[in-house]
């Protein structure tokens, strides 16, 4: 296992219609790290994530995942290593039942029937929805659907979890459950989000993007204290780091 598990080098990408999305992105993420990628709408977060899984080929630049640099040939390997949780669980749950959906990946890996069955049960119990295995996806709540989408990825036993807005559209309780769930995962995590409070809960490092560039990369506590960085990249301090309007105290020690 390589020490630098994800390495992105000078990534440039312009969409076919001429919109520039990424201009010179470079970073390294090491094994076991949890990194939040934050930035305003259209900052380039989603485009960056699509690069990591090879759905978009960069105009310039290189990506290394684990021991492989990303090429057409290594794509299947890389997609196994790097599990992607999409923003809309409906895009990810396309099979008739949750069981079939979670089994989809392991079956494609060519596992035996029994192994597939075990993988599915493990993945479902790890996200706490084993009891929903025979339900169709449209019979699940938003939170359950999100958990199921994560289970479909977990079942592939990836080393890295990449998530796009995992807490969007969740009610507070489901959001909290999800955060607690993600805390239990030992995977290397990359989370693109607007939910800065969740980022504080889950990540020790943050990459701030603006207009296709990285404007800050470092400790999440330090960067989220820096008002000028946050302001210029159209972000806002996480709520819990803002002073309480009544007692003027912040919940987090500075």
């Amino acid at each position: 296992m390589s020490h630098h598990i994800i390495e992105v080098n000078d990534l440039h990408y312009t969409y076919p219609d001429g919109t520039s999305a990424l201009s010179g992105i470079s970073f390294r993420i090491t094994h076991g790290e949890s990194v939040a990628i934050v930035g305003a709408n259209a900052a380039g977060k989603s485009t960056l994530l699509l690069h990591l899984n090879g759905f978009i080929t960069p105009n310039i630049g290189k990506i290394r995942i684990g021991d492989f640099s990303l090429t057409k040939k290594t794509l299947p390997m890389i997609r196994r290593t790097l599990g992607m949780v999409f923003q809309d669980p409906d895009d990810q749950l396309f099979m008739p039942t949750i069981y079939d959906d979670v089994a989809f990946g392991p079956i494609n890996l060519g596992l035996s029937k029994e192994d597939v069955h075990n993988k599915v049960l493990d993945a479902l119990s790890s996200v706490g929805i084993l009891h929903l295995k025979d339900r169709p996806p449209y019979r699940l709540s938003g939170g359950e659907r999100r958990a199921a989408a994560i289970a479909t990825v977990i079942a592939m036993s990836p080393d890295i979890l990449v998530m796009d807005e995992p807490t969007s559209n969740l009610d507070p309780k489901s959001r909290r459950n999800l955060i607690e769930l993600l805390k239990t995962f030992k995977h290397t995590k990359i989370i693109a989000t607007h939910d800065l409070d969740m980022a504080v809960d889950l990540c020790e490092r943050v990459i701030v993007m603006h207009n296709g560039k990285i404007v800050a990369d470092g400790s999440i506590m330090e960067i989220f204290q820096n008002d000028s960085i946050l302001f210029s990249s159209h972000l806002e301090k996480p709520l819990r780091m803002q002073g309480c309007p009544k007692c003027q105290n912040s919940f987090i020690e500075k």
Partner: peptide, 23 residues
């Protein structure tokens, strides 16, 4: 657009044109 995203989701889980079910 959704069809495209679903296809990506399928590809990232090893889809090779064949859908196999466990039923």
């Amino acid at each position: 657009n959704r069809a495209q995203r679903i296809h990506m989701a399928m590809l990232s889980r090893g889809f090779d044109g064949e859908i196999r079910t466990a039923s």
